[in-house]
Amino acid sequence: MPLMCIQYSEHLPNKQKIKSFVVEAHEYIASLVNTELNSFKTRIVPVAEFIVGDGKTDEQRAVLFVDFRMLPGRTDEVKKQVGDYLLQKAQAAFQEGITRIQVHIQVQVGQLDAPNYHKND
């Protein structure tokens, strides 16, 4: 049921850590939102082009967008904990110690529209 989409610029530092970032997030968040680990689905999407601000120095910038969605029923506090966790882990994996490039990280946590969410598993 929880769905996550990670979009990142192709020159994101430490991008080889994305899979471990996702697996650790699945494991931690499963207990936080009280759902089964195997219900998590994540898409990892490299983005060939992106623009930050004026777009003049994008080769010196990288982006990482994390969009996390779950079915309704979680409190705002739980959603905040999920967002805080994802941001902290993303900063540790993709931003800390990186000086050659500026990494922009955004995390969004929201709800799936339950009446319009369809799946076959």
Results as ranks from 00 to 15, higher is better:
P46N: 10
Q95E: 13
F94G: 06
E96G: 14
F40G: 03
T57A: 14
V33M: 05
P2N: 04
L32V: 04
G83R: 01
E77N: 13
I105N: 12
I18G: 06
K41P: 09
V63M: 07
L86E: 08
V45N: 06
V66W: 02
V107N: 07
L32R: 00
V47T: 09
E36Q: 14
I18W: 04
R74P: 02
A62S: 10
L112W: 08
V22T: 14
Y117G: 00
L64M: 06
D84M: 11
N34G: 04
T42Y: 10
A114R: 08
K19E: 01
A30Y: 11
P13D: 02
L64W: 01
Q106F: 02
E27C: 07
D58I: 03
V109C: 00
D58N: 11
P72I: 01
A30E: 03
N34C: 07
K56T: 12
G53F: 13
Y28C: 02
R69C: 12
G83K: 04
D67P: 05
L64K: 01
K17Y: 03
Q16W: 14
V33W: 11
G97M: 12
M4Q: 04
D113M: 08
H26A: 00
M4E: 00
Q95N: 05
Q108M: 07
I29L: 15
D76V: 13
